[in-house]
Design a protein around this nucleic acid. Structure first.
Lengths: 125, 125
DNA sequence: CCGAATCCCACTCGATACTG
DNA sequence: CAGTATCGAGTGGGATTCGG
């Protein structure tokens, strides 16, 4: 039925917990590991490393290690990574316009069913 | 640092495995449970039910049960759900333009590192 | 400073079988 | 037809500790 419809890698790639935030964090300038960790409050080094490696693998950012003591590494967006900002902004714009309505729907659902909280949270980036 | 930046519910909501596909499936007309199940090849009744309930809870679609025998239920997008198509299309457009580049980066990463496959697959909708 | 190693939990998703 | 019940695998993410 949807044969020929395009793949939709972007929401999947960006829909995880940290990728979008990392891109926002690198939008204006390259950052060092510790800067990212400080900005992304709550991320552990392991998860930050995994996320950065995964994004590097997909060509969204580059990792540059300087041979100094103490060691220094910085991460910067590639053009490919930067190009994701546009669809991300489309998602943000949707949230700006419609998130309140979604939250209202969710609240009235819980009122009427006394249900337990479900999936799909809301994150700020 | 990013205080005041808008929440980004859309990629999170749509970034799961089935939500985007369900929206595409309901884009042109309401569908019954079995129609959805047939179109979304591979989804199990349990997961389809969970997804639909979760989307109903968030006001993305409505569920209508008709008191007939055999039972009949249909699902249709709300205006809120329909409004998600626009940012979804932005993600699709990004994939159309850049997915090949991402896959190339991923391939050359594996060539150079003999690494094991990582996260973030690619889905067609 | 920038991670790697290890352990662990929660949660999503799927397979299978059953029902009003 | 439209689900529900149960079980289980896989994975993303987190806590903690250790190393170059």
């Amino acid at each position: 039925m949807f044969l020929g419809c395009p793949p939709v890698a972007a929401p999947i790639r960006v829909g995880d917990k940290w990728t979008a935030k990392i891109i926002r964090c690198l939008e204006s300038a390259p950052r060092r590991f510790t800067e990212l960790q400080a900005t992304l409050r709550g991320i552990t080094p392991k998860v930050l490393t995994e996320s950065l490696r995964s994004m590097e693998r997909d060509g969204l950012l580059t990792r540059t290690a300087y041979d100094e003591i103490p060691p220094r590494v910085d991460y910067r967006l590639t053009e490919l990574g930067r190009s994701l900002i546009e669809p991300m902004n489309a998602g943000c714009e949707w949230s700006r316009r419609h998130l309140a309505e979604l939250m209202r729907a969710r609240d009235s659902w819980y009122e009427s069913t006394s249900g337990i909280p479900g999936r799909s949270g809301v994150e700020s980036i």
